[in-house]
């Protein structure tokens, strides 16, 4: 079955895509379709599950099995699907509002359980479908319709959140780099456990240039540092800048000014998540934003453990016998000629 060769078109539903022209979602949709085609896993085993929001319309446009559920709750539905049929590949699509506001609790628990699925969190730092209120990832002082004098609550950092919850695969990519997205998606799919990916995504209508502070073309190479396992954290158009530890913080230095040995070497498989958390916390005007795979480690997978425990119990007690179950261990036998007591009810005939 998996021999079949697919193209991107095989995963494209024959439906009109109704995102706004110029929306970053189009590129992400294309990248997922391309990744699925390249991975070549059976199309009928691909299940896209989403909540509510612009990004959550995603499964409608995929020619796979899909379930567009309710706001914030997709991780619970996905967990149920995986418990019922662990062979399915789950792609969970959510946004910063769906995943981190109304659905924060469910995302937290799906991550800590390490349910085997890929989570794509589209982060555009705004509520699009409800027409432009600030979101839990909007910076303080964001002016929107619901915050005319600026937002006053601190944003949450999606990757710090995922790492703190115990995520075993954490990555970041962005909507204008199809190659990078496909690479990250493919690695995520091949990881066993929950793969959490933050995608910097632009909302052309309500928060255009959401990530321009790092992604704008002319500054991008100075503002992004690409994470490659086993490679030094070096960035800049001229590859002249690097990251070194100063205490527990990463500081930007000129490569020329430091010993090569002091430049941090990226390791995705560190036992402690501390390093990945320090990377995730790199934010602000003075430091670059990391993209790529922050962390990838092995940890028991929830849906594997569900099956294992079921098998262990079957092995220990044998397959269940319903009559034994009903009889229980405190029943007794009566042998007599007595007939059941006559029913005091009679059947009504209109």
């Amino acid at each position: 079955m998996s021999e079949k060769k697919y193209t991107k078109k095989d995963f494209t539903a024959d439906k009109l895509v109704k995102w706004c022209p110029g929306c970053g979602d189009y590129a992400i949709l294309a990248a997922v379709q391309k990744t699925m085609a390249d991975l070549g896993r059976p199309k009928e085993q691909q299940v896209v599950i989403s909540g509510i929001g612009c990004s959550s319309r995603f499964p409608i446009y995929m020619d796979t099995h899909g379930f567009h559920t309710i706001h914030g709750r997709a991780p619970s539905v996905a967990t149920g699907v995986k418990v019922a049929n662990p062979d399915l590949d789950i792609w969970l699509v959510t946004g910063d509002g769906d995943g981190l506001s109304i659905g924060g609790n469910h995302l937290l628990h799906a991550i800590r359980r390490n349910v085997n699925m890929v989570v794509l969190l589209f982060n555009n730092k705004v509520y699009g479908l409800t027409k432009g209120q600030y979101s839990p990832t909007s910076e303080v002082d964001t002016v929107t319709k619901s915050t005319p004098y600026g937002s006053i609550d601190e944003p949450i950092n999606p990757l710090s959140f995922a790492l703190s919850a115990g995520a075993t695969f954490v990555a970041r990519t962005y909507d204008t780099n199809p190659k990078h997205m496909q690479h990250v998606f493919s690695e995520a799919r091949n990881h066993r456990g929950l793969s959490f990916i933050e995608i910097y995504q632009n909302c052309v209508i309500f928060n255009d240039g959401a990530h321009d502070n790092v992604l704008e073309r002319t500054i991008r190479s100075e503002r992004l540092v690409e994470l490659m396992n086993g490679e030094k954290l070096i960035f800049g158009k001229e590859k002249d800048k690097c990251l070194v530890f100063e205490g527990l913080e990463l500081a930007v230095k000129n490569v020329a000014d430091v010993n090569e040995a002091d430049i941090v070497t990226h390791e995705t498989a560190q036992a402690s998540p501390t390093y990945a958390k320090i990377l995730a916390d790199l934010q602000g005007a003075d430091v670059p934003s990391p993209i790529g795979i922050f962390r990838q480690v092995e940890r028991p997978v929830y849906n594997d453990a569900v099956i294992q425990q079921t098998e262990d119990v079957k092995e220990k007690y044998g397959m269940g016998d319903l009559q034994n179950l009903l009889n229980g261990n405190a029943s007794w036998e009566v042998k007599s000629d007595a007939h059941p007591i006559e029913e005091e009810f009679t059947t009504f005939t209109p």
């Binding site: 599950i49 379930f67 709750r73 991780p75 539905v77 967990t79 149920g80 418990v83 019922a84 049929n85």
Partner: peptide
């Protein structure tokens, strides 16, 4: 949600 996901999956 878990229960409904399971029903969806058969």
């Amino acid at each position: 949600g878990v229960a409904l996901g399971a029903s969806y999956a058969g």
